[in-house]
Design a protein around this nucleic acid. Structure first.
Length: 404
DNA sequence: TCTGGGGTCCTAGGACCC
DNA sequence: TCTGGGGTCCTAGGACCC
């Protein structure tokens, strides 16, 4: 029996939430941005999109496209709150629900839709509840699998509802550019175009061995995607994270290593604190740097033991920095902890506690000695300054991805 | 007043081991 | 009187997603 999967995608989520919160913004071209000096557009309202304002644009570009654009600094708590409320709505219709991102969810309604009058009736209900309760439009796609459900919602935005039944799939895909499929980006579509494959129809008919030769293990998956086949299930349980990282574009490019290290310390503390809060340890630390010309590179090192201590993360990242000859000033710094495992709860011995306290004090002293300019203390600089705790669509309502 | 931040997955080459 | 072959671990980089 074919499954019935629903994709619920909020329309211009952050912008819609802001317009709902402030009636003066309704019907106007607005854009939500981050808080930094060199931020970009996170979400543009549909009124702003008409002028060509797009996600990822810098402020200058966006204002050029739409001079009357109203900029709103994102308020993550609002979006998280709304997202959590939305999951409650979805759970009225099925327990088999995956919060894929902050503004998108997959629902497997295969075994529950008959209780509510069928898939379309559920879609209509969800749209109405969300509109009535939160004042937000959403677009819903219904299909035999996630790939097609997502496509159905993508091609029906905004404020749409589309059910692609199994028999309709070939027709929908026949002339659809491959780039429209979830998982096929610009590079893959270019490589496919070089093989004369532009539409999903062509991809579905392409030679499996040719695709395997050119694309390796994903070759067959590509062909299946072209045919509208996808076996990825709706994953209701939150999975363990694979990495915990933070990065920041600096207010100004910096070349001074001590200044760079101060940022590395701050990012290490953000990473360590999040890992500790959710009881994860990691064994790999990576340091990412970006030059003004946007060249970006990463150094990674394996720790001798799993850890989530700020100073261990900091030390390995700072050591990696020492081994790098910088060709220019730095525009972005990132610190990431990966190879994650759960922290086994255990009673630290008195010895351990004492050792940790000493380590902590030592590192603080060392840091303060070195970066006296920053008047660095745990309380004043690292702990309190949070940079708005950027929310990303990779965020999930519970668990470690709660980066606030 | 150029270009954010959070992730996942895959590949490729080298070191090292048997 | 030339260089097997499989496996794992490691680092680096890239594609893709929201």
């Amino acid at each position: 029996m074919p499954k019935i999967i629903m994709c619920v995608d909020m329309d211009a989520f952050f912008a819609s939430v802001e317009q709902q919160a402030d009636p003066r913004l309704r019907g106007k071209p607005i854009a939500v941005t981050g808080s930094g000096a060199r931020t970009v557009i996170t979400t543009a309202s549909y009124e702003a999109r008409k002028f060509g304002v797009k996600t990822g644009m810098n402020i200058y570009e966006a204002k050029k496209a739409c001079p009357q654009l109203i900029l709103v600094t994102g308020d993550n708590e609002k979006y998280i709150h709304t997202c959590k409320e939305l999951t409650k709505v979805y759970n009225q219709f099925t327990p088999d629900m995956e919060t894929y991102s902050i503004d998108e969810a997959f629902l497997d309604i295969t075994t529950t839709h008959h209780l509510f009058g069928g898939p379309e009736a559920i879609g209509i209900s969800i749209k109405k509840i969300i509109k009535d309760r939160f004042g937000i439009n959403c677009t819903i796609g219904i299909a035999p699998n996630i790939l097609i459900a997502k496509l159905a919602s993508d091609i029906s935005k905004p404020d749409g509802l589309r059910w692609i039944r199994p028999d309709d799939v070939p027709d929908v895909l026949k002339d659809l550019p491959v780039k429209e499929l979830w998982g096929i980006g610009s590079k893959t579509s270019e490589r496919l175009a070089a093989l004369g494959i532009k539409t999903c129809g062509e991809l579905g008919r392409a030679s499996a061995s040719l695709l395997r030769n050119r694309f390796g293990i994903i070759g067959e998956t590509l062909k299946l995607m072209g045919m509208g086949i996808c076996s990825r299930p709706v994953i209701a349980e939150e999975e363990e994270p694979k990495s915990i990282g933070h990065s920041m574009t600096l207010p100004k490019n910096i070349g001074d290593r001590d200044e760079i290290k101060a940022y590395i310390l701050k990012l290490s503390e953000m990473v360590g604190r999040r890992a500790r809060r959710y009881r994860y340890l990691g064994r790999k630390v990576s340091l990412t740097l970006r030059y003004p010309d946007f060249e970006t590179f990463t150094k990674q090192t394996t720790l001798s033991q799993y850890a989530n201590d700020t100073h261990i993360i900091y030390k390995s990242a700072a050591d990696m920095l020492s081994g790098i000859r910088l060709k220019d000033r730095i525009r972005l710094i990132g610190v990431c902890l990966s190879d994650i495992t759960e922290d086994e709860p255990h009673q630290p011995s008195l010895f351990e506690i004492e050792r940790r306290r000493k380590d902590l004090l030592n590192i603080m002293d060392a840091v303060n000695d070195r970066f006296g300019d920053f008047k660095l203390t745990w309380a004043s600089y690292i702990m309190q300054e949070r940079d708005g705790g950027v929310i990303s669509p990779a965020w999930r309502p519970t668990g470690v991805r709660l980066t606030l």
